[in-house]
Amino acid sequence: MAKLIASESLGQAWVAAARHLAGCKQRKDRNLILEISAPQKLGKDDLKIIKAVDAALRSRREDLSVETVAGTIFPNGLARRFSRPELYTNYLALLAKGKKRSSWGTYAQRMMSRPSRNGTGTINPLDDLIERLLQTHNGTKYQSAFELGVSDPDIDLAPPLDGHGYELPVFDPSRDAKPLNVPCLSHLSFKITNGKLDLTAIYRSQWYCQRALGNLIGLSQLHSFVGKESKYECGVLTCIATHAYLDTETFGKVGVTKDLLAALPG
Rank of each mutant, 00 (worst) to 15 (best):
V170P: 00
L157V: 02
T257F: 13
K231N: 12
D152E: 14
D198S: 09
R27E: 01
Y107V: 08
E67N: 02
S7V: 03
S37R: 15
L133P: 00
E249A: 14
R84Q: 11
R132M: 06
A93M: 12
A262L: 07
E167F: 12
S151Y: 14
D172Q: 14
L197Q: 05
L92F: 13
S102H: 09
I202C: 04
D54P: 11
E131H: 06
Q40M: 08
A13D: 12
R204H: 03
M1P: 05
T120D: 09
I36N: 02
S186F: 14
Q12G: 01
S189K: 07
K3F: 05
R132P: 00
C239M: 13
L10M: 10
T242V: 08
A17N: 04
L34F: 04
Y245Q: 03
E147M: 13
V182R: 14
N76P: 00
C24P: 03
R84I: 00
S220V: 04
G214K: 06
G218Y: 13
I50H: 05
N194E: 13
F251P: 00
T72Q: 02
S37F: 10
V226E: 02
D156Y: 15
K258V: 06
L216T: 12
A244V: 09
N124Y: 08
L188M: 07
K25P: 01
K100R: 15
L57V: 05
G11T: 12
G235Q: 05
G77R: 07
A6N: 03
R132N: 02
E249G: 08
I130H: 05
S65R: 07
A70F: 06
L134S: 03
H243D: 07
N31Q: 06
P160W: 15
H164G: 06
S144Q: 12
S174D: 05
C184R: 04
L94T: 01
H243G: 02
T122N: 09
W207E: 01
Y208E: 12
A241I: 03
L237M: 06
I5L: 14
H164M: 09
Q206L: 10
D54H: 12
N31I: 09
A96W: 04
A79D: 04
L92A: 10
H223D: 06
D54C: 07
Y142H: 12
F225W: 13
L87S: 10
G23R: 08
L10T: 11
W104T: 04
K99M: 13
V150L: 14
A13Q: 10
E67I: 01
V254D: 04
Y88A: 13
T106C: 01
T106I: 08
Y88P: 00
Y166E: 01
S65V: 07
C234L: 08
I36C: 00
I217W: 05
I217G: 03
T68F: 00
F171V: 11
K41V: 11
